[in-house]
Design a protein around this nucleic acid. Structure first.
Length: 297
DNA sequence: CACTTGACCTGTCCGC
DNA sequence: TGCGGACAGGTCAAGT
């Protein structure tokens, strides 16, 4: 499930692979994966050159040279995989590599460039999307306009984080940090990892998270995301980078998908519970419930 | 208004 | 082996 570190890894990869390339065609295999009209895709994306690649939270933004941009959201199972002659047939790619079998049954959009290279948008569950929009209107997009601050920018300070949390005083801390309007980019993996690192139980009511704990959580979110980017993100099931390769962060994860294992800090057994409607991983000893918590069903 | 739950999808896994 | 159902989770719409 691509969260900020995975999307950032894809962005870094695409920056090395498709900048300056001219889009020759865009084939839409699944209508709901392309939110723009066919006529807009043809008029404003086909024929344009990829100028720059940006990211806002979990949203990938391909800036074209004609003042239009392609917004790409990977949601849960989206992949952006680049293939050209050298990667398809060249050295360094094992025979079982994903790129040798593309397109496959999950391919939803095929973008070809005028040099013969191809960018595949795969999305098993069809939750993700591409959208062609005028660059000047991105900030007015309903989703973009509501996004909270970027956690990896210097202006995202502990006090900004604390203020943002106060928008959701009545809910639990996990639901609050998953809320993209509070801050942009945290998903289920990094929510669990950051809360463990900060020793906060995910069911704790936001109003009951002390200022010092908020500072610890702020630091944990930033640290866990930076560490993940260094390791190419997390590949639970579907995620791969722009070269079709998996990320290795989950080998460093301390609680996510580690239920039944011993906590690296105290040795207690990691549990999987349900918080904010999500599978949630905690160490019951390290993450004690402080005072009252948000009641859960 | 604030918050929670269900829907959207499809592949996988589990129990019978 | 086959089948039904639960499950995975980012976001939005609907419900409380």
């Amino acid at each position: 499930m691509p969260e900020l570190p995975e999307v950032e890894t894809v962005r870094l990869g695409l920056n090395e692979l498709i900048l300056g390339k001219k889009i020759a065609s865009i084939e839409v295999l699944s209508e709901k994966s392309m939110r723009s009209a066919r006529s807009d895709v043809d008029a404003f994306a086909v024929g344009a050159v990829v100028k720059d690649i940006d990211r806002r939270g979990k949203l990938l933004i391909l800036h074209l040279d004609n003042n239009y941009s392609i917004l790409v959201h990977l949601r849960m199972t989206g992949q952006m995989v680049y293939v050209d002659q050298s990667t398809r047939f060249g050295a360094g790619h094992p025979n079982d590599s994903l790129i040798h079998s593309l397109p496959d049954s999950s391919t939803r959009i095929i973008c070809t460039f005028d040099d013969g290279a191809t960018l595949y948008f795969n999305d098993q569950r069809k939750f993700g999307y591409w959208m062609v929009v005028p660059t000047s209107q991105i900030s007015e997009d309903a989703f973009v306009a509501k996004l909270g601050p970027e956690p990896l920018l210097p202006e995202f300070t502990a006090s900004v984080f604390s203020e943002r949390l106060n928008r959701r005083k009545g809910t639990n801390i996990k639901a609050a940090i998953l809320d993209q309007t509070v801050l942009a980019g945290v998903g289920n993996i990094y929510a669990d990892e950051a809360l463990f690192s900060a020793k906060i139980h995910p069911s704790t009511l936001v109003a009951n998270v002390a200022e010092e704990q908020r500072e610890e959580l702020h630091e944990a979110i930033v640290d866990v995301m930076n560490l993940s980017i260094q390791h190419g993100g997390s590949s639970d099931k579907n995620y791969v980078n722009a070269e079709g390769k998996r990320g290795s962060y989950l080998t460093f994860a301390q609680v996510f998908r580690r239920e039944g294992q011993a906590c690296v800090v105290c040795g207690d057994t990691i549990q999987k519970i349900r918080v904010a409607g999500r599978g949630t991983h905690i160490c019951p000893t390290c993450q004690q419930l402080s005072i009252k918590r948000r009641t859960q069903k």
